[in-house]
Amino acid sequence: MKYLLVIALILGVFWLWRHNRQVENKAHQTPPAGKKGAPAKALTEMVACPVCHVHLPKSEALPGGKGFYCSEAHRREAES
Rank of each mutant, 00 (worst) to 15 (best):
Y3R: 15
L43H: 11
N20G: 11
M46N: 10
Q29C: 01
M1T: 09
E77S: 06
G12I: 03
V54K: 15
P63H: 05
Q22R: 13
P39D: 06
P63R: 02
K41R: 15
E60H: 07
I10G: 07
V54G: 04
N25M: 14
Y3G: 15
R75K: 10
R18M: 13
L43S: 11
E72R: 04
M1G: 15
G64Q: 07
V51I: 07
A40I: 10
A61Y: 04
V6I: 15
H19L: 07
V51G: 00
H19V: 09
Y3L: 13
H28K: 14
C52Y: 00
V23N: 00
C52S: 05
E24A: 09
L43I: 08
N25H: 13
T44M: 09
V47C: 01
G65K: 14
T30K: 14
L16Q: 11
M46A: 08
K2N: 09
E24Q: 05
W17C: 10
S59D: 08
V6R: 15
C70S: 04
E60K: 08
E72I: 10
M46Q: 13
I7A: 15
Q22M: 08
R21K: 11
C49H: 02
C52G: 03
I7C: 12
W17L: 14
R76Y: 00
K58F: 04
Q29R: 14
K58P: 03
K41C: 05
G64H: 06
P57R: 03
V47M: 02
W15F: 14
R75C: 01
T44R: 11
V47P: 01
V47W: 00
P31Y: 03
G64A: 07
W17H: 13
Q22H: 05
P63S: 06
H74A: 00
F68L: 11
G34F: 15
W17G: 13
N20Y: 08
R21P: 01
R21D: 08
E79P: 00
C70A: 03
G12H: 13
L11W: 04
A33H: 14
G34Y: 15
G37Y: 05
L11G: 08
A33E: 14
H53I: 06
R21A: 12
G64S: 04
L11P: 00
K58G: 02
F68N: 08
P32Y: 06
T44P: 06
G12Y: 14
A42M: 10
H28Y: 11
G65L: 13
A61E: 03
V51Y: 00
N20K: 08
E45W: 07
H55C: 10
V13A: 09
P57H: 04
G37A: 09
V6S: 14
L4P: 02
A42D: 10
V13Q: 03
P39K: 06
A33R: 13
W17K: 12
E79C: 01
S71H: 00
G34V: 15
Y69H: 01
I7D: 14
L11A: 04
W17R: 09
G12N: 12
Y69D: 01
A48S: 13
K66P: 01
E72A: 08
Y69A: 01
L11E: 04
P57E: 03
H28F: 14
W17F: 15
F14E: 06
L43Y: 07
L62R: 06
S80M: 12
A38Y: 06
H74V: 01
L11Y: 06
A42W: 05
G64F: 03
H74C: 06
A33W: 12
A40M: 09
M46K: 14
A33K: 13
